[in-house]
Structure formats: C-alpha cells, structure tokens
Design a protein around this nucleic acid. Structure first.
Lengths: 190, 190
DNA sequence: CACTATTGTGAGGTTTTGCTCAGCTCTTGG
DNA sequence: CCAAGAGCTGAGCAAAACCTCACAATAGTG
C-alpha cells in the first residue's frame, strides 16, 4: 500500500507543477522532484506524461460531484436561492483547479482519451443541473437542455475568471451579478 | 517590401500552427515549414518564439474592434436587438481566433508583456460595451461596470465553446438563448 | 535472520527544440 | 549588365525533454 501513497504524491505534485508552469513546461523531472520521488518511480506508475494528466482528470471528476444538489429546497419563490447554491458550489470547488481544468481542456484537443473524459465530465454535470431545474416550479424557459448547457458553462468559466484575475471585483459583487443573470434567465419573460 | 509579406506569411502560419498543435508543440520549425520559409527567415523577423506570439496578439487586437457599435439604434424597446448585434459580432469575428486567444491568455501567465497586452485588450472591449449600454434607455442594472465585464466575457467564451464543439446545438438556438439571458439580465427586475 | 516481493533510484540514451551563421539568391539603381 | 545590398537558406549545435534499465532499498513472511 506504499504504492498508492506514492501515486497520490505524484499526482498532487503534478497538479501543482502543471498549474505553475503549464503542461509543456511542467516536465516530468520537475514533477518527480516536487513529489520528492525519482523519475523512475513516476514512470513505474504512469506509462507517459499524458497518462499523468489523464489520471489527474479522473481525480478531478471524482471529487467534483455536486453533493448538496439532492437536498435543495424546491419550493416556489426559491429559484434565486437554488441558483446561488449552484454558483457557491462552483466557487467553493475551484480553489486551485481552474487553471488545471483549462490545461486539460486545452490539451484534450490532442488526445482522444482526454477529450472524451472532459466531454463526459461536462455531460454529467449538465444532466444533473438540467434535472434539478426541471423539477423547480419557478423555471419558465423553453429549451431546458440548451439552457442547462449555457448555465453550467457560464457559471464555471466565470468562476475560473474570478479566480485567475482576483482583483477585478469582489467575490460578493460578482456572485450577486452572476446569480441575478442566471435567475432572471431561468424565470423567463414577464 | 518583400520583407513585410514574409513577415505576414510567418504570422499567419504561426496562428495556424499554434491553434492546431498548441503553443509548446507548435515549433518554430513547423511554423517556418507551414509558411514555406526557412527557419532563418523566421528568426530574422522575430528574436524568439515568444515574440511571434506577442506579434500575433497585436494583430488580433488591431483587427478585433467592434466597428458597427457606433451606429446602433438605441431607441427604447430595442435592447434585444442591441444585444443580438453584440452576440452576432462575436460569432462573426471568431472563426479561427478563439483557440488562439485562449493560448494567449494561457501563455500570458508567464510573460509580463503578453499579460499586459491581453489585459489591455479586455479593458478596451469592456469599456466599449459599457459605454454602449450606459446610453441605452432600457438598461436597468445596478453595477454597470461589473455587468459589462460579465457580459463581454460570457458572450465571448460561450461563442468560443460553440465554435469548438459545434454539434451541441444549432447556432440559432444558441444565439437565441444567449441573447435572451443577457437581455433579461440587462433589463433588470420586473 | 534469510529469502522473496514490492517499491524506489538516477545516470544517461534518444529525440526534439529553439536558435545560429556562413553563405546563397533575388531585386534594383545606374 | 553589374554591383551592392536586402532578403533568404538549411545543416547543425547546445540545451532540454521524455523515458529506460540495471540495480538498491525496503517491507513482508516463516
């Protein structure tokens, strides 16, 4: 079981190094050094550099499920609260990951395996949000599928921007505007 | 003046290669090959690889101004049309550039020069949109600065997604939903 | 303690990349 | 047609990256 621990150390170090230097400049040697492990060990657990990023994505997906989604209040008039919970979850779950996810999406352009994993991750999350809003009585939007995609992506990517450039606005102001936009959208016209 | 032409050929090729292979894997040799120019010529016009990306950003900024913004109808009741023009402009102007801009933002993390150029580009565009909506009578949002940032980024990045993964929805459907979301947001409550 | 299985090591081979430079080709003015 | 300079070439070098492999250290078992 020492093995599992080393594997985890390597993955954590890889996340750090990829975020700090980018994928290409995040060399395997640097990763091993940061994990305080020899390169040989790294290549004992991963056949090549891409596999490290792929494993990192699996880890991200496993951690990134929206746990509280099932126990939300769906009473009429609570739409803003529901949306706020969605936005808060995105903010909370993305302390260090945003740049990493961007790297994954970027690099997924060249790797079938990564691309499919990213796509599946997205679909899973969209489906969860779609089902949630399908059950909410205040939602009055025509095409719920498109709406869910639009919302998930918009919330996620704006959160990433907030993390990447922190001094544009305060977190609260940003959160309020984003919640306002999504809520009014979901409520529909009138 | 043969020189200027070669410089342009190199830049165009660089855009192509960076988009196709990413920044790190977009080697200078590949760029030269695609431009049908020798490596030596490339290094006659650019001191190093980073300078090529920087020049590409300058080119992008120069081309990316929103020309029709000044001659838009700002009569009451025309907000949706104004927003639609904004979205259409984003769609039209981003046939090949979206991935390139992402690479620039990504790489800007490691280059002062690039970071500042990207930031200036963003501010310029946000200011233009803010001024436009400040003049429109239908807009009823509290914090116009934050709103403009949110809208510009959301429209841009959703357009990028549409281009990158084309078969999620049709362009019209996507355009309608995005326009609807932004319009209802700008109109404010009630 | 002895023996095996598991896990870890790191110098270095192979490949790739950014970049140089000595010399070539093309254009242009007289 | 010629000379001079502007523009272009591409083999190859130094540096750096990915990855291998023969071996060392550690953990587990009787």
């Amino acid at each position: 079981m020492r093995a599992e621990l080393t594997r985890d150390r390597i993955l954590t170090a890889a996340a750090h190094v990829f975020v700090e230097h980018g994928y290409a400049a995040g060399t395997t040697n640097r990763i091993a050094e940061h994990a305080r492990v020899s390169i040989g060990s790294l290549y004992q657990y991963f056949p090549n550099k891409d596999a490290v990023l792929a494993a990192l994505l699996v880890r991200h997906v496993d951690r990134g499920r929206w746990a509280q989604a099932e126990q939300l209040d769906l009473a009429p008039g609570s739409l803003a609260q529901t949306v706020r919970a969605l936005v808060r979850d995105a903010i909370d779950n993305h302390d260090e990951d945003p740049r990493l996810l961007r790297i994954m999406i970027q690099e997924a352009q060249h790797s079938r395996e990564l691309a499919e994993a990213v796509a599946r991750h997205g679909e899973q999350r969209v489906a969860q949000v779609r089902d949630l809003f399908a059950r909410h009585p205040d939602v009055g939007v025509a095409d719920l599928d498109t709406a869910a995609e639009l919302i998930v992506f918009t919330v996620e990517v704006n959160t990433h921007r907030l993390m990447a450039f922190p001094r544009n606005t305060t977190v609260e102001k940003f959160e309020n505007e984003l919640v306002g936009m999504v809520t009014r959208y979901l409520r529909g016209d009138r």
